[in-house]
Design a protein around this nucleic acid. Structure first.
Lengths: 199, 199
DNA sequence: CGAAACGTTGACCGTTTTCAATTACAGTGG
DNA sequence: CCACTGTAATTGAAAACGGTCAACGTTTCG
């Protein structure tokens, strides 16, 4: 869903390209000119801020499908480093042309606002799910959030270990939670598909 | 910061008013017409979705200063309930007038986009901090994020117990983490002020 | 003054992490 | 076609950590 919106939004902007980065390579540096807005195609990119005492603080990590450096639409310079965590491919959308158009084109600006509003909603939900302390309740909440249809079900495309990271759990804890939920009848598994029976 | 931006943004919109809600009272209901966008002044309001099987899923909880139902700018109906968790006061900004203006006024639309982009950044960082498992490292990351100046320091305005909630910890765990950080020399405390010594 | 919320500490318990080992599985090259 | 290699999935056991409960001191405010 995010990808589609993102692609639609910026379909009219020329100069988009996909760039590959090695692990630990910088996509951009704090203080550098804010030239583009990005979407991770493959891999993961962390936003890292250099603090006054020389230490580092990770502000965010964007994985496949997620965007980063949206603020480059509104700022002159980047306020953190973007470092590829692993070998990554990143779609880069130049922001200069976009910025120009945004000042005249209310519809485009509104589209951007709408896109960000959607991200806000998604992030809030992820945050709410993160605060659930019990591993299995957290996993169940995540599944219920992602599931579609009647009965609600979903195909898990990513590796479970990656999902464990998104959930703030260790892979082991996730496996155990899934098993427990299955045993309790809260979910049914068939390969990578999960079904949530209606009570 | 969020409050200021929010107030600025919607300063020109008429019909804003503050409404008080009792605990468990609904600000709006899923399916109802999306008539306003809100900011919590006092208390806390949860967004709750009704799922197919009749159960509930909490999507977000907005506390003092935070906004909710931004999506009412883009949708006809609310997609969840908003329920006051405690006695709350909520600033309500009618969205119909706003929607009209947004289609013509690119600057306002861009301001809204910028506002949401800021929220996205903040939420991403909170999410990143939430995944830190160790209580004291989580607290330290939060402090480093919020601290300003040299040496980095911050005044804690809210009650610690509220901050504990924001951090996804119990108050007890937070007190212990603070004590531990202080003993380790990672922070210095003076009443409600926290200083982060430069190494 | 008294009530209510906040702050602080201690002890115990349960869950998750951690570490380690094993199995399944996909891709690769002999 | 099969051994080989790396990654993901799974299970077990022990330790660590934060949650919970309980008690008490402190501050705030009507």
């Amino acid at each position: 869903m995010i990808e589609i919106m993102f692609e639609q939004l910026f379909a009219g902007i020329s100069g988009a390209r996909v760039i590959a980065y090695a692990a630990d390579e910088a996509v951009f540096r704090q203080g550098g000119p804010a030239e583009a807005i990005f979407q991770v195609q493959e891999g993961a990119v962390s936003m890292v801020r250099h603090l006054a005492d020389g230490s580092l603080l990770t502000l965010a990590t964007a994985s496949s499908g997620e965007t980063f450096a949206e603020a480059s639409l509104f700022a002159e310079n980047y306020h953190c480093d973007a470092i590829a965590r692993t070998r990554s491919e990143v779609l880069s959308i130049p922001s200069a042309a976009l910025r120009l158009r945004l000042n005249d084109d209310a519809v485009l600006a509104l589209g951007v606002a709408r896109f960000f509003a959607g991200q806000v909603r998604e992030l809030r939900t992820r945050l709410e799910i993160q605060r659930i302390r019990s591993a299995s309740e957290r996993v169940l909440a995540w599944l219920r959030w992602r599931a579609r249809g009647t009965p609600p079900c979903l195909e898990v495309a990513d590796a479970w270990s990656r999902i464990a990271t998104e959930l703030g759990l260790t892979p082991e804890a996730l496996y155990r939670a899934l098993k427990q939920l299955e045993k309790a009848g809260a979910i049914a598994r068939d390969g990578r598909a999960i079904v949530l029976p209606l009570h």
